[in-house]
Design a protein around this nucleic acid. Structure first.
Lengths: 222, 222, 222, 222
DNA sequence: GATGAATGAGTATTCATTCAT
DNA sequence: TATGAATGAATACTCATTCAT
């Protein structure tokens, strides 16, 4: 009779204020959506993991669709803030800003694997409004990167011709980061820093240089 | 899609050989899985699209899980063959082989969007056996690319230090390709060739060179 | 109506005496039951409309069933009082008393459509105790009418033969009134007076003949 | 564990053709809707009474709403046909046609109490599309009666003045019939013929005077 | 007295899967 | 071979009702 997921013996804490409950529920939802996928996740399991009854889930966060959207929004915001914080810690060098941003990104993915899985895999597997929600975040990320690239180019005195491509390049870099993060999920033996460095090397130097033995080195102390 | 209680009459062609039936079913399954996702896809809709009765679907290809796995296997094989064909068309230059492989890959994605969606988005959104099936294909792809990179390095007389990284670089390149293909799904305005060239440029030259105004040019006649 | 997970803030007036609260609740309940029907009405909506918290509804008026019964009782009483008042305003003429009673009835229905809807449509759609509650009211109404008819007959010197039917006739008249009121709900273009006059015309002229001893006979063989 | 409504020990007949199943389901639905009301009726109980599994109910007749509408349509059609048959059996006399129609109506109500309960009580308690479905049937009934009344009036040489009211009178007669039928549901001791005769007496004598140009006038000052 | 927080027990609906023909 | 008919088992969502404060 008892469901497999029930935390047996755990006493439910009662009468918590709304805010706390909402956080609990979102945490649980991210965990379950990440592991099962949107459709396979059941509201039953989410409520069990959140250690609360189903009606409260509905009362606080609405339908399954609403809940999923809320997860995406919250996680996307957390991720973007983490990256922005990383960039802010760097000095004025665009090169270093990029590096810090990447570090922060992979740091986030490493720390909150479920969040990233929900954001990247689940949200894009479901089409429609969810993918769009994500698309917005991606656009903000791309803009951020594009700005860095433009600064770099200006520092090096490169003209308009090259800068015309910055948006596309930024999109490619963002895509490459996402992809590498995705790959990392299934190969967790490397550290966040190593993965970030690998990407930096790859895209910054290019294969052409790498096979020539030239590599990019992370600045000291990061 | 059409609910059963509104009756529709369609005449079905009968007594087709097993092979043909299987192809029909797999085609339908790829289409439906790609558009709805694994869970949201219903065996009912698949059998309708395949223009065959549900029990036949089960007779020929087993459970829903089996069917999905069969889709992945078939599409993955098709994709790998397309890439191998592309590479084979190139001469001995590893540089050109890489380019042809990329072209073939993006050509495939452009031509069989549903196939790619199933392979990349749906298969990885469902965990477990499906992702593994994909993982195998990816490994084969990575090996292929790694071999090319090693050849390149040897051509240029680069030593073991650099080649030690080839596997990781190959993985990164494969990942970047997947990611770019994924992005392309949602931005279909570019041609396959243009997307491939963009990637080649990016990873071969590196951002560092690109912002300096150096670009890689596809060889003539491709 | 507004789901709980979108928060709304409303200031509630506090500490009202019990009577006032009960009236508020009953008013809200009649409105909601009338519009949604017994089952589709939710205690949540009722408490919202009553501008009071749900536990208070339970504290004051008990379960949903109790609340519905209370509605019926209150509205039935109001209706019967309205009719009695109407009849009392007339002189001794039974003819005029009937007319005033009908006017009062249709006046009530016109003024309190929700009340009538709850009484007539909802209460009888739910079987069991509710219908019985109504049945009692109906019996009182029928007795009232029957008394009028007997007086009429006596005034006109009609014998026992005709009076034997008075109860049935009264029931028919009451039924016809209810039915016409029901019809009127959906055709509100006429005035209460006009509807009452129409009914009076229809049945009174029929009664007129009946009490004169004229009856219509079914053709042989049916 | 076993539901109260289960017919224990009954062996389910299997593999019946669609038509038969649909009839079974509709019969069960009318029975359950009539006894419980639309909302309180559960698809579970309906499928049990129909002696079939729930998915078949959905497969054949759609959602609960669809099913209810189908019940109303089928029963309304049956009723109208019964009345039309009754009228057709009469000769040319409108008087007799009316009588036969009434007899047929009450005969139907007596024989198919559940049908009538669904049509009259449940359908009108739920607003919206259901009530409208019923409204259509009522309009057809009213037209039928109005035609009879016009014929009567013409037979007796009554002018346009009186006939101008036929529609309203017809509506009143239909309403009175419905109402009496409703009353009869709760007082089943009388025969269908007796109830029909009572109504005929009541309203016909009233009508008789009306078509002769006699009308009852409300007293002054009200 | 008054309420936000909480839940057990349903209800409609769908789906993968399998018989009987 | 081929299919219409059939179902067990799940799932999203709701509601009357009650604590704890």
């Amino acid at each position: 009779m008892r469901s497999t997921h029930e935390r047996a013996g755990r006493v439910r804490s009662k009468r918590l204020p709304r805010e706390v409950r909402e956080r609990q529920i979102l945490d649980a939802a991210v965990e379950v959506f990440s592991q099962r996928g949107y459709h396979a996740a059941s509201m039953d399991e989410i409520s069990e993991v959140a250690d609360i009854s189903k009606p409260m889930v509905y009362a606080y966060l609405g339908s399954k669709e609403d809940l999923f959207a809320a997860c995406i929004r919250r996680e996307a915001t957390k991720l973007m803030e983490a990256i922005a914080d990383g960039v802010a810690e760097a000095g004025n060098s665009p090169d270093e800003q990029l590096w810090r941003g990447l570090r922060a990104f992979f740091g986030f993915v490493g720390e909150f694997r479920d969040s990233w899985r929900v954001l990247h895999r689940q949200a894009s597997a479901q089409g429609g409004p969810f993918a769009q929600e994500l698309g917005d975040m991606r656009k903000r990320a791309i803009s951020l990167v594009a700005a860095l690239l433009i600064n770099t180019a200006q520092d090096e005195g490169v003209g308009a011709a090259a800068t015309g491509q910055t948006d596309a390049l930024a999109a490619a870099l963002v895509g490459a980061s996402e992809s590498l993060a995705d790959w990392w999920l299934d190969h967790p033996e490397e550290s966040a820093g190593a993965v970030a460095a690998r990407l930096m090397n790859l895209v910054w130097m290019g294969f052409g240089n790498l096979v020539d033995g030239h590599t990019w080195q992370p600045p000291k102390g990061s």
